[in-house]
Design a protein around this nucleic acid. Structure first.
Lengths: 254, 254
DNA sequence: TGCTGTGAACCCGTTCACAGCA
DNA sequence: TGCTGTGAACGGGTTCACAGCA
């Protein structure tokens, strides 16, 4: 194991492109909804609309899984639900630990989507002794001291980090040492992990900054824009936003 | 929907690739840390390491912004912080509303990273009358009925949706109608918005499913191809069949 | 007649390797 | 002598357009 190998290169004959993998949960959600409405089959067009992608992409994605559709008809909903679930590894149950039971950790513990599909919150862990023993979402909070034991006793391989940034790397190291090989990181830090460990990050402030970038753009080019939205009531915008310095082209004449 | 115009096509003149924009906040965070330690300059190599990318990519990214470095030396930290902040539109203050003050909404309201850089929680909104008037993170919760007025009075253009999935589209529509043009969606739903409105989504359960996919892969090291309907000579795992080196803790199926 | 499945073209982003400048 | 800035090669992902099959 030498240099940067974070995700495997999808080499094998079985290789499903990473971009496709990232969309499978989306399809699965749409299919589950259809299933609950007892819809027997869907066309790529319909399903794509429900999942918010275009149909060519969806068909291409599915083609990596195999030929699960019927030409002239579409896809069998139940069958696809099963195939995608299996592909994603959701036919088994994944015990997950959440480390850091602050506001966010508590929110995650309470999040219904967790239990609904293949995941189970096996334990909540926090460094604050005041929290230890108290239950959040019906699950008792345990102390960080027991982290390794908890991981091992429960056979946990997926960990969620919801601690402050300063504690994240340390927690990460302990999780990995205890056997965790997939980490979902909510702390605003770059985690470094050994090869073979996957990290995905969710970073609120980064998302907002990306939005701000585009938002700023919109403000500056109301003229050249392709006229997409901009409904009648454009009155908003020139609100009392500040402008301590005027480096940014101020809002247009509205 | 929309005939393929979700993000504008990176206008020639000012065009910064979307992938680069998504990394700017990462660089900014690393630079801010350096700045606080009064480090005057960094090389692309050092900064790249701090941001978790490789140096060639970082230099290429910065080249889209302009020539802000000094050959043989590196980048001036303060100067870069300013340039990136400006590029991202963070030299102005963005009022943000959070709709849906459940566990997650409350966590977001309390999230420090919000206020720290360019963003200000202008209002919290919830449909539950029991919450109305109560303060979360020092900010009073207001009722959904007043959503439009709140948006307009505060000149809000960025909205955060943290409602249950069922309410998200409706809330989204109202936000957009009231003038919001950027939305950060935490609800597990595909939102449809008119052209000119940006949506970014954060979806816990999707992230976990992606991790599960890779995790499953790790467990079945030698497996050739999980059959779909075409049985090969390969026995599907399903049973707790693991590789000789039991590096990954066993997982028990439900 | 539809709708799936897929080669091929196209586009965007990453990496390489080196030219250019302090 | 470094280290930045960047053209060019490369590779993955998306889109197109149509062949193939129920």
């Amino acid at each position: 194991m030498a240099t940067g190998r974070t995700h495997r290169p999808a080499t094998r004959s079985r290789g499903i492109p990473e971009a496709t993998v990232a969309r499978l949960p989306l399809y699965l959600r749409a299919l589950t909804a259809l299933s609950e409405r007892s819809v027997p089959t869907v066309s790529s067009e319909e399903l794509a609309a429900a999942a918010g992608v275009n149909s060519a992409k969806l068909r291409k994605d599915f083609s990596y899984l195999g030929s699960y559709g019927t030409r002239g008809v579409g896809y069998d909903v139940e069958y696809l639900v099963y195939q995608i679930s299996r592909e994603l590894g959701l036919t088994q149950d994944w015990p997950v630990v959440i480390v850091g039971i602050g506001n966010l950790g508590a929110a995650l513990a309470n999040y219904g989507g967790f239990a609904s599909r293949g995941f189970r919150v096996a334990a909540l862990i926090d460094a604050d002794p005041a929290l230890t023993g108290r239950a959040v979402a019906g699950i008792p909070v345990q102390h960080t001291d027991d982290l390794e034991k908890i991981i091992q006793d429960n056979g946990v391989s997926i960990g969620v980090i919801a601690t402050p940034a300063g504690a994240a790397q340390q927690v990460c190291d302990r999780l990995v040492a205890a056997g965790v090989t997939s980490i979902l990181n909510f702390a605003p830090t770059v985690l470094s992990v050994p090869d073979g460990v996957d990290v995905r990050k969710v970073d609120l402030s980064i998302e907002l900054q990306i939005l701000a970038f585009h938002e700023q753009r919109k403000a500056g080019e109301e003229a050249a824009s392709p006229d997409g939205g901009v409904p009648a009531a454009v009155a908003r915008k020139e609100s009392a936003d500040k402008g301590p310095d005027g480096d940014v082209p101020a809002v247009m004449p509205a």
